[in-house]
Amino acid sequence: MFAVYITHPQVLIDPEVPVPDWGLSATGAARAETAARLSWVQALSRIVSSDEVKAKKTAAFFGRATGIEPEILPDFHENDRSATGFLPPDVFEAAADAFFAEPEKSFRGWERAVDAQKRIVTAVNDVLARHDTRQPVAFVGHGVVGTLLKCHLKGVEISRAEDQGAGGGGNLFAFSLSERAVLCDWTPIETWQGWTGQ
């Protein structure tokens, strides 16, 4: 059976608001609503979300579609970049490049990539240790820690080459619950048609 890791779609960027408190833009909300209507969503038995607003709002669409109350767990948050606060998009992209390029170093006080990876992997493993692997589960979170999780599951070095790419988020990858093997690469949430394997 499968799990999906879903990244929140487009957000309302506000330099005056702490990044974890950003919500979804109209485009992001529309994409989440569209994705939540897909047939594979009805197979979900559990939804686990980061406690950041944009992730919780994304998870809420899937929760309403399934009747499942999302579980909000703090260790699923994005990499901690509070040391710098908001960075303009071009500056942020350069910072993200540095973050992935030197995973054992902190970029200007950011949580290190190796530490963020250990946190998200542990958080996912803790959930799955108490989960029936015959039942699909969705994790709703963020692009950076999602990429770090994907690197771990693939058994590859931390690299931005595994990132979801430009576009503002709203992608998913799937992995098997039995073997923890990646089943599909990042795919827009509103286009994935589900996993037909076992």
Rank of each mutant, 00 (worst) to 15 (best):
S159M: 13
T196K: 14
P18R: 06
N125F: 13
P20I: 07
E93H: 12
S106P: 03
G67S: 05
G155W: 10
G170F: 00
W195K: 01
R160Q: 07
W192I: 08
H142R: 06
T7R: 04
P103F: 04
I158E: 00
F173H: 04
A138T: 10
P18Y: 03
L177H: 03
G155H: 11
I189H: 00
S45M: 09
E190N: 07
E157M: 10
E179A: 13
A32L: 08
A94W: 14
R81T: 07
T187E: 07
G167W: 06
G146A: 09
L73C: 02
I120V: 15
A60N: 02
I189V: 12
E162F: 05
A59M: 11
V11N: 03
W22Q: 02
E162L: 09
T84Q: 03
R64M: 14
K57Q: 11
S25R: 02
L12M: 11
A94P: 07
G146T: 05
P88F: 07
R37N: 03
H131V: 15
F61T: 09
I68K: 02
R119A: 09
G63M: 07
C184G: 02
K56F: 04
H142L: 07
C151S: 12
I47L: 08
G168M: 06
H77D: 04
A174W: 01
V121Q: 06
E33S: 05
L183Y: 01
R108W: 07
D14W: 06
K105P: 03
Q193M: 13
T84S: 05
G170D: 00
V48A: 03
A96V: 14
R160A: 05
W192Q: 04
E104A: 15
E162W: 03
L73W: 01
V182Y: 00
A166K: 12
A95H: 04
A95R: 03
G85C: 08
T133C: 15
E179L: 10
P88I: 12
G67H: 05
V11G: 02
K150Y: 05
D97G: 10
F61G: 01
Q117G: 10
A161K: 15
L44T: 09
D97T: 15
G167M: 11
H152I: 15
S178E: 11
K105W: 09
P136E: 10
G141W: 00
Q198C: 10
P9R: 01
K56S: 06
F62H: 03
